[in-house]
């Protein structure tokens, strides 16, 4: 559910560092389940820079339209253009097929991010 090679924001985005100063960003398994069918994903322009906590896109599900916040600072190198035709990839596999943006990390990872175990505990506490 929550891969160990990702770090997680409390509002349910993940960042997956790729080891070369870049990382993939998307929403967690918990977030996609809570949203239900993702039907539309709005992503930023390549080259846009974001601080940790900045809104970088929106995810529209059958239920609602939700903002996505950048879990850590970075510059957008690439967006997952597959999501335009296949927004359901976010539901099917949020960490691989359903990633949203690839960023060049600006500085160190946001120290407030949670590891998989801490995030799982956070999700469990939110559910109650």
């Amino acid at each position: 559910m929550y891969p160990a090679d990702c770090k997680y924001a409390k509002n349910h985005e993940f960042v997956k560092p790729l080891g070369d100063g870049t990382a993939l960003v998307g929403i967690s398994q918990y977030a996609q389940e809570a949203l239900g069918d993702v039907v539309f994903v709005q992503l930023p322009e390549v080259g846009a820079s974001f601080a940790a906590g900045d809104e970088f896109g929106t995810v529209e599900s059958v239920k609602t339209v939700s903002e996505c916040y950048m879990p850590t600072a970075g510059e957008v190198l690439e967006v997952n253009s597959e999501l335009e035709a296949h927004p359901e990839f976010v539901n099917e596999d949020p960490y691989t097929k359903g990633w949203m943006v690839k960023i060049k990390l600006t500085g160190a990872l946001n120290p407030e991010l949670l590891d998989a175990a801490a995030y799982e505990a956070h999700v469990a506490s939110e559910a109650h």
């Binding site: 389940e33 239900g36 069918d37 039907v39 059958v62 239920k63 539901n91």
Partner: peptide, 20 residues
């Protein structure tokens, strides 16, 4: 099913996919 409160009841809002 994903269950929500609706009126006085706990009801399914969707199972796997509301779209499907």
């Amino acid at each position: 099913a994903n269950i929500v409160e609706f009126g006085d009841y706990m009801m399914p809002i969707w199972y796997a996919s509301a779209r499907n």
